[in-house]
């Protein structure tokens, strides 16, 4: 599988490590969230057949975190973004 890194161009998936569902970016504030919210964040994942967003870490490269959108049915990678851009777009400071 080839991941088209937004800064570096196409790179082999062997350089990356997959780190799980992209929803992990949106961790609730542990001081104010209810136990149910924390439980859902920790344990519940969608098991999508189709378009799926995942965190990938470019360990053997520039150490950036990416959000990769891929199709679990066709293995097609449709979008690759820097995770920090996604987080900032969601209103996070970094």
């Amino acid at each position: 599988m080839i991941i088209d890194h937004p800064l570096l161009g196409p790179r082999d998936a062997a350089e990356f490590v997959v780190k799980g569902d992209a929803s992990l970016i949106g961790r609730p504030d542990g001081m104010t969230a209810s136990p149910e919210d924390m439980h859902d964040y920790m344990y519940l994942r969608d098991n999508t057949a189709g378009e799926h967003r995942e965190l990938w870490y470019h360990e053997q490269g520039d150490r950036s975190w990416l959000v990769v959108t891929r199709n679990t049915l066709t293995h097609e990678v449709t979008k690759v973004e820097l995770a920090r851009d996604v987080a900032r777009a969601q209103g996070r400071s970094r």
Partner: peptide, 9 residues
């Protein structure tokens, strides 16, 4: 570029 060669960064 930074990459991996023969399993070595």
């Amino acid at each position: 570029g930074r990459t991996v060669m023969e399993h070595m960064g």
